[in-house]
Protein backbone atom coordinates (compact mmCIF):
# COMPACT_ATOMS: atom_id res chain seq x y z
CA UNK A 1 0.00 0.00 0.00
CA UNK A 2 2.90 2.31 0.83
CA UNK A 3 4.19 2.19 -2.73
CA UNK A 4 0.73 3.03 -4.09
CA UNK A 5 0.53 6.01 -1.75
CA UNK A 6 3.99 7.12 -2.84
CA UNK A 7 2.95 6.90 -6.47
CA UNK A 8 -0.12 9.05 -5.82
CA UNK A 9 1.98 11.58 -3.94
CA UNK A 10 4.46 11.63 -6.79
CA UNK A 11 1.70 12.34 -9.28
CA UNK A 12 -0.44 14.77 -7.29
CA UNK A 13 1.47 15.99 -4.24
CA UNK A 14 3.69 18.43 -6.14
CA UNK A 15 6.42 17.82 -3.56
CA UNK A 16 9.77 19.49 -3.68
CA UNK A 17 11.41 16.12 -3.00
CA UNK A 18 10.93 12.72 -4.64
CA UNK A 19 7.98 10.93 -3.03
CA UNK A 20 9.48 7.51 -3.77
CA UNK A 21 12.50 8.16 -1.57
CA UNK A 22 10.74 10.11 1.21
CA UNK A 23 10.68 8.58 4.71
CA UNK A 24 7.32 7.17 5.82
CA UNK A 25 7.10 9.66 8.67
CA UNK A 26 8.50 12.68 6.82
CA UNK A 27 6.32 15.81 7.01
CA UNK A 28 4.68 16.17 3.61
CA UNK A 29 3.88 19.85 4.18
CA UNK A 30 7.53 20.55 4.94
CA UNK A 31 8.26 18.64 1.75
CA UNK A 32 6.28 21.29 -0.08
CA UNK A 33 2.74 19.93 -0.34
CA UNK A 34 0.31 22.86 -0.51
CA UNK A 35 -3.26 22.63 0.76
CA UNK A 36 -4.40 22.75 -2.86
CA UNK A 37 -2.20 19.79 -3.73
CA UNK A 38 -3.45 17.92 -0.67
CA UNK A 39 -7.00 18.13 -2.04
CA UNK A 40 -5.81 16.45 -5.24
CA UNK A 41 -4.00 13.80 -3.22
CA UNK A 42 -7.22 13.11 -1.29
CA UNK A 43 -9.22 12.77 -4.49
CA UNK A 44 -6.64 10.44 -6.03
CA UNK A 45 -6.53 8.31 -2.87
CA UNK A 46 -10.33 8.10 -2.80
CA UNK A 47 -10.38 7.01 -6.42
CA UNK A 48 -7.52 4.57 -6.16
CA UNK A 49 -8.53 2.81 -2.95
CA UNK A 50 -12.25 3.22 -3.57
CA UNK A 51 -12.82 4.92 -0.22
CA UNK A 52 -14.45 8.15 0.92
CA UNK A 53 -12.76 10.22 3.57
CA UNK A 54 -15.49 11.38 5.95
CA UNK A 55 -15.33 15.09 6.84
CA UNK A 56 -13.93 14.27 10.26
CA UNK A 57 -10.84 12.81 8.55
CA UNK A 58 -10.34 15.71 6.17
CA UNK A 59 -7.78 17.50 8.26
CA UNK A 60 -4.18 18.42 7.99
CA UNK A 61 -2.87 15.77 10.38
CA UNK A 62 -4.32 12.87 8.37
CA UNK A 63 -2.35 13.91 5.28
CA UNK A 64 0.80 14.94 7.11
CA UNK A 65 2.90 11.87 6.25
CA UNK A 66 2.86 8.67 4.24
CA UNK A 67 2.40 6.73 7.48
CA UNK A 68 -0.61 8.79 8.59
CA UNK A 69 -2.21 8.38 5.15
CA UNK A 70 -1.70 4.62 5.33
CA UNK A 71 -3.25 4.54 8.79
CA UNK A 72 -6.30 6.43 7.52
CA UNK A 73 -6.75 4.16 4.50
CA UNK A 74 -6.39 1.08 6.68
CA UNK A 75 -9.07 2.43 8.96
CA UNK A 76 -11.41 3.07 6.02
CA UNK A 77 -10.83 -0.31 4.43
CA UNK A 78 -10.87 -2.32 7.66
CA UNK A 79 -13.37 -5.16 7.62
CA UNK A 80 -13.49 -5.24 3.85
CA UNK A 81 -13.26 -8.71 2.37
CA UNK A 82 -10.49 -8.88 -0.14
Amino acid sequence: MISEIRQILKEHGRLATDATTLADDADLYQAGMTSHASVNVMLALEGHFDVEFPDAMLKRGVFASIASIREAIEMLTAGRTA
Partner: peptide, 13 residues
Protein backbone atom coordinates in the same frame (compact mmCIF):
# COMPACT_ATOMS: atom_id res chain seq x y z
CA UNK B 1 -11.41 28.77 -6.51
CA UNK B 2 -10.33 27.48 -3.10
CA UNK B 3 -13.91 26.71 -2.16
CA UNK B 4 -14.44 24.97 -5.48
CA UNK B 5 -11.62 22.55 -4.71
CA UNK B 6 -12.74 22.09 -1.09
CA UNK B 7 -16.22 21.18 -2.30
CA UNK B 8 -14.72 18.33 -4.35
CA UNK B 9 -13.90 16.44 -1.18
CA UNK B 10 -16.57 17.67 1.24
CA UNK B 11 -19.29 15.12 2.01
CA UNK B 12 -22.75 15.89 3.28
CA UNK B 13 -23.29 14.93 6.90
Amino acid sequence: ATNASLLLVLKED
